[in-house]
Amino acid sequence: MAILILNQRRRAFAPYLTWLEDLDEEVYLYTSSAYGETKEPYALVQVFNNWVTNDRVEIDAIRLYEEHPYRLVIALDESDLIRAARLRERLNLPGQRLGSAMAYRDKAMMKSLASQHVSCPAFRRLASPLHLYDFVLEHGLPVVVKPVDGMGSMNTHVIRTPEQLDEVWERGLGGGLMVEAYVEGEMYEIDGLMMGQEIRFASIGKYSCQPLEILGKECFVELLSPEDPIFQRLVQEVQQVIEALPSPGISTFHCEWFHTREDEWVLCEIASRTAGGRISECISAMYGINLNREWVRGQCGLPLTLPASNPPQVAGVYLMPKRPGRVKRIPGSLPFEWVTEYVPRVKAGEQLDAAHSSVDAVMTVIIVGENSVSLQARLAELLLYLEREVQISPA
């Protein structure tokens, strides 16, 4: 048989044939133009323009199956999960079906299911501006308005004042939105791999900022040692969420939580995909595991490589957000042996706009340390260095 991969990533971030080097089957690749030219020995490569909105991806996949049947559809990006689930249902293939994909993608549906088992903010799907009006009357301000299927904090707004609410009315609410009560507290994220509804691997990180309000703010995500008292508590919380939602089969997950001053864990959201913002690469630096590789191999029925013991170090990823202005200077490299990855995302001379998502960054930097104390000390040293070496003139 064969497998079909739906991909919108660049080739450097999607080495499927390397991950599947021991797979004795043909691999068909449907990909966006971002993948780039390739001479890799795929059985088929088909490139689609306007990938996210191009309905030919699904139609051509059906036609391909009629002539060259495949046993699996694999998709790693959140915006492809619904598309892949529709194909599986149409062709009766194993893997995440539409009910599960919708539950992990639609945040209102997700909270309706999860709220029966864990604490969630008060929320409501917005079918009209009157729903928002009534929600504010009942729960007060601040509130958070966001797309039910949003990613990376895009188009997410914290409304704190009546004046900001009036701006929403003036602008027009639009469709596909939900509102929820704002939760005060620290924010954590948990990433991992699940098989069915069993967590097989987990990593936990703490945000230095509120992702709901990250636009234009620096953020550091510090991965916690598995020996941290919070670690097992949060694993147990997310396990309850996973059990409350329809099983995606074998999948990675990315889940965010609020930790209140009253020591309560409140669910923000969960997705059946790998974390962005270089968090998954940070996990790789700490644990030596590539979550996307294990996700793909697990779906194909191949052996997995999961950490057998606690990691010898901790890690964190720093994101410097974009801000309006012209880039005057940015380092080509960083002079620290404890930096395991440095990715500058802009060039000298480039004109920048404000950040549009939580991962819209000038750079990302992954650092490691023996423990939390050394990691924070190295972060402070890094920030002092970048303050001197990065120059962005005001717009």
Score class of each variant (00 low, 15 high):
M1N: 12
N7T: 04
R10K: 15
A12K: 12
A14W: 02
L17Y: 10
T31V: 03
S33R: 14
E37F: 13
K39W: 15
A43W: 11
H68P: 08
V73S: 02
R97G: 11
L98C: 06
K111S: 05
S112M: 14
L113Q: 00
S115Q: 07
L126V: 05
P129D: 04
F135A: 00
V136Y: 06
H139G: 01
V148Q: 08
G152R: 02
N155Q: 13
T156Q: 04
T161A: 03
E167M: 11
W169I: 11
R171T: 14
Y182G: 03
D191Q: 10
G205P: 02
Y207Q: 11
Q232H: 13
V238I: 14
Q239W: 07
I250C: 12
T252W: 01
E256T: 07
W257K: 04
F258T: 04
R261N: 14
D263P: 00
E264G: 02
V266N: 01
L267Q: 02
S272R: 04
A275Y: 01
S280L: 10
I289V: 12
R297M: 08
R297A: 05
P311S: 05
G316D: 02
P331C: 04
G332L: 12
S333V: 08
L334A: 06
V339R: 00
E341K: 14
Y342F: 12
V343R: 08
G349E: 06
S358G: 13
T364E: 14
L375M: 07
Q391K: 15
